[in-house]
Design a binder for these strands. Sequence first.
DNA 1: TGACAATACTTGTTTAAACGATTAAAGTTT
DNA 2: AAACTTTAATCGTTTAAACAAGTATTGTCA
Lengths: 153, 153
Amino acid sequence: MTELDSRQVLAVKSAWGLEHEVFLKLVKVVNELSYEIEVLLKEQGLSSAHYNILRILRGAGEEGLACSAIGERLLVKSPDITRLLDRLEKQELIERARSLVDRRIVTSCLSEKGQKLLAALDEPMKQLHKKQLEHLGETKLEQLSKLLDDIQN
Amino acid sequence: MTELDSRQVLAVKSAWGLEHEVFLKLVKVVNELSYEIEVLLKEQGLSSAHYNILRILRGAGEEGLACSAIGERLLVKSPDITRLLDRLEKQELIERARSLVDRRIVTSCLSEKGQKLLAALDEPMKQLHKKQLEHLGETKLEQLSKLLDDIQN
DNA sequence: TGACAATACTTGTTTAAACGATTAAAGTTT
DNA sequence: AAACTTTAATCGTTTAAACAAGTATTGTCA
């Protein structure tokens, strides 16, 4: 029994190495955490990609951001920002305008409706993250945070 | 600057809490690791969902497994196992047969071609995982593994 | 300046994911 | 045993992801 199986991820260790074991656990954890978040977002008609774009735009403020800049900032890359923005525009959560300086560029910024939606989601999202991870305790969370940093160096 | 941004995930900490910071880092890490794995699998015409099913079937051996059993064992759940299996069958990587005992059940098992494909992927996959995580060192990997276990309790 | 290349975004098309409804078989109840 | 419920898998349709090709604008340079 050295195969992939959600019921006994641990069994993979000996045959496939610690690295593989850790990878499987990472995937499992992220999927479980993400699932609950997507449920919360879906209630508001958002996917996590859409939500993340809205948050990036909130961070950008009045001036807004170009498609390419949004793409660069996205944690989970998407090859098709345009259509994600299309949908957000249809929902009136963002406003798009072609730049006067460089007419190739289309700048998107958060609408008032978008700001309100994000604001309404802030607290529930915070609470959900707490519910999901608070039980670890601050020490372990700090440890985990550092280990995740280490992976990317 | 308290918003989601791949360039400065750390800045989220103060305003959104350590829990949120850790979640973002988990998502980022898993996406980066998964990306390379998907590239490797795509060379063989497989998505990670397909690959994981093949591995589950290898673990099941001769008798094979029912759709529902495959679904339960999948780390990343899918609502439509049937069509994933359809594709694997078309690629001749699995064989399906309706159970004689209970004719509702369709049992899938790995074909010879499927076994060979998996075998050919074993070493590259192992090496990739090593490349991605070996630099952490055994101690930190063990730590990380335990912390991930803790999240799910 | 006119041709060529690079950048920024959009569109078209193919492919796969999501969700609900449907069929078929087996188990349960009266 | 007939009616009902549950379980197992499949199918139909809608929706979104992926990838490649295309359009428009700007920048470069001979």
